[in-house]
Amino acid sequence: MKLLSAALVLIILFFAAYEIFLFFEPLKIDETLIEINKGASAQEIAQKLYRKNIIRSKNWFYIYVKLSGKDKQLSWGKYLFFGNYSLLDVVEKLISGKVVLNKLTIPEGLTIRKTCRLLSRNEFGNYLKFKKLCNDSLYASQLTGFDIPNLEGFLYPETYFFPESASEDYIIRTLVNRFFTQTAELDFNPTLGLDFYETLIVASIVEKEARVESEKPLIASVYLNRIRYGMKLQADPTVAYILEQMGRTRYRIYYRDLKIESPYNTYLNKELPPTPICSPSYTTIKAVLHPQESDYFYFFADKSKGTHIFSKTYSEHLQKQRNLKKKNGK
């Protein structure tokens, strides 16, 4: 009987110690952003915190805030949790108010280098840390599921709101996750034998060529026609990308630039560049997946209008260039 009583006491003490552990022992939390909706009940908040692995016990959270009257002090908004938090710490954080979010718009058509510079200049993190993450092939493969050398093409252009304390890793993951979220509805059925990644590469070239949204499907058709007939793409933006990687950013491409030896030089190689050359927008990717039907193989820019002039043959292409020069008095 005494043994039974002792065993019962030990069991009670064990469970008491365990409950104290759930209440007071800090929990290590990976970088997690959570949004508490306006008007959410204490029970709903407890459920969300538990699902996000921010608290060990939703029951203890609910009991504590109800008995202490703190359930009425919990503030709605977005909170970033990172590090060690006890249940009491979590409650105090939610009472403290909303996390300040900083806005940043990432335009379409930026390279890794320019995206990292934009993030750094707006004080979202360290340029070298951003760049190192984006060019880490293992990291890129883990985030995308593709065996790729870097994250070029996956840093989705959009307006973001980041917490002040967000790390470089958190920000880059957010950009890549947004890419997959926004493009999920697109049907990436192989076009001309192009797989998902190759489609993204072509889209990145179209992004850098197009100045008018309505021209994207037509520009895409030119490049896809060239691929279909085994022609070199001869895309100036691929040469501009080489120059940027060499630290030679300029607005004009010279004839000597077309001879630079590089797998990205589409004047020398029939193959696609090994990676995208920028991050294209949703509409540009869609234009490559659903191009306008055409017999065009050539185009050049009409700088006075900000559009392009398209041709079916090279001789027609040259004639239209001469006509435009004559029209402009050159």
Rank of each mutant, 00 (worst) to 15 (best):
N150G: 02
E168G: 12
A7I: 14
E25T: 15
L8V: 07
K58E: 09
A166H: 05
G109R: 09
L272H: 14
K103Y: 10
L27H: 10
F188R: 03
S311L: 08
I45W: 08
S75C: 09
S86R: 13
N189S: 11
Q47V: 11
W60T: 07
T191S: 13
K52F: 06
M1A: 14
G83A: 00
R248I: 00
N189W: 05
E108W: 05
I309L: 09
E261H: 07
A203W: 09
F81Q: 01
E261F: 02
I201C: 14
P280H: 02
E198K: 15
A6K: 13
F81I: 01
Q43T: 14
L74Y: 01
E35N: 03
C278K: 07
I253T: 10
C134L: 08
I11E: 03
Q182L: 13
K129A: 11
K270T: 03
T284G: 09
E198I: 09
K330S: 15
S214D: 07
F196M: 14
L192D: 13
A203R: 13
T183H: 14
L289Y: 04
C134R: 08
Y50V: 03
I253E: 11
L119M: 08
E164D: 12
Y267K: 07
Y139P: 03
T307E: 07
R56L: 06
I227N: 11
V176K: 09
Y197R: 13
R228D: 14
K303H: 11
K327M: 06
Y127C: 01
